[in-house]
């Protein structure tokens, strides 16, 4: 009886387009879905630091170095922010980190691709952050209050990331022949994986139904993907780079770009752990975590000593 009343109250909030807050009653599935989605988002920020962090010491100008360093720092901040939002759902940071390290929780498949040249810093900003923004703008309207507020804050910084990525691409596309080649090569490698960031087709997305009904997700995977392609295709044109999809073409009737089929076998393979960097990313995270164990232990022992002295 009580359960029924709770559910009605919850649905009333959802239907009125109001935000669900941590203190509100929520169905267990809603909570689980949010923990999975927000933590996956947080883990993506954290693992996403690796491919870019790998270029900080090699950035080709002081300006580029400062921007990249600030960007990777933003990602750490976003990760922290999203972990905190997840903690409001009754799970600890330690549990979240453990889920990441044991493979129980996922992160975006895009970060399982290697950042092999400096142009990849351009494509990661332009395409990867560009795709993330499309998703995050939509999520600003998500029904869970802490997640929605995190998205509003994060979107502001992401649009700066996307611009700096596009700026790198612009410089390179207009630079020497070698730079142009490097830029086109990076676009060739990152285009399809960035389309995969939006997840499977709607017809094949097991989590979409409830998530849309509960307004956790506000737009479908395919709609978001289309929005990203429409925006990005024009940007590629402006700087004279070619998107590696022979079927990409403006469709006047639809008012959208048509595009070729994504290699879903590759997507599945990378999700399941056989991307070029899956093992490396988790090994890196584990190593940092393990190497830092004595530091965390010292900090907590010191804090306990201080508390005892103060008492």
């Amino acid at each position: 009886m009580n359960e029924q009343k709770n559910l009605e109250g919850f649905e009333k909030i959802i239907n009125a387009d109001k935000k669900v807050e941590p203190r509100d009653w929520m169905p267990e599935d809603y909570r689980k879905h949010l923990i999975r989605q927000i933590s996956q988002h947080g883990h993506s920020e954290i693992i996403g630091m690796q491919p870019e962090g790998n270029w900080i010491t090699r950035a080709p100008s002081l300006r580029a170095k400062l921007i990249l360093l600030a960007k990777v720092q933003d990602e750490a901040g976003h990760g922290l922010y999203l972990y905190s939002a997840t903690e409001t759902l009754g799970i600890s940071r330690e549990e979240l980190v453990e889920q990441l390290q044991t493979g129980k929780a996922k992160y975006s498949t895009i970060f399982n691709y290697p950042a092999v040249t400096w142009a990849d810093m351009g494509t990661i900003g332009w395409l990867v952050d560009g795709a993330a923004i499309v998703n995050q703008i939509s999520l600003q309207r998500t029904s869970y209050g802490p997640y929605s507020r995190a998205m509003i804050r994060i979107c502001k910084e992401e649009s700066f990331h996307q611009r700096q990525g596009y700026e790198i691409m612009t410089h390179m596309a207009r630079g020497t022949a070698e730079q142009r080649e490097m830029a086109q090569d990076a676009l060739n490698r990152w285009w399809w994986p960035s389309l995969m960031m939006f997840g499977p087709h709607d017809s094949n997305s097991p989590n979409t139904g409830k998530a849309i009904r509960w307004k956790i997700k506000r737009d479908s995977n395919d709609d978001l993907r289309q929005r990203f392609i429409d925006k990005t295709a024009k940007q590629a044109d402006v700087i004279g780079l070619t998107i590696p999809d022979p079927k990409l073409q403006w469709n006047d009737e639809r008012g959208h770009y048509d595009f070729g089929e994504i290699d879903w076998a590759e997507f599945d393979r990378v999700v399941k752990g056989d991307g070029p960097c899956n093992k490396q990313r988790i090994a890196h995270h584990l190593k940092a975590h393990k190497d830092g164990a004595w530091v965390r232990e010292a900090a907590s022992v010191y804090a306990a000593k201080r508390a005892k002295k103060a008492a």
């Binding site: 954290i46 630091m49 690796q50 962090g53 900080i56 010491t57 170095k65 360093l69 990777v72 720092q73 750490a76 901040g77 990760g79 922290l80 972990y83 890196h284 190593k287 940092a288 190497d291 830092g292 164990a293 530091v295 965390r296 900090a299």
Partner: peptide, 18 residues
């Protein structure tokens, strides 16, 4: 800057980058 993504705790990653 070499500490980026290698710090003992996330808060420290932010501090060292700062």
């Amino acid at each position: 800057s070499e500490w980026s993504s290698y710090a003992p705790i996330l808060e420290e990653d932010l501090a060292l980058t700062n």
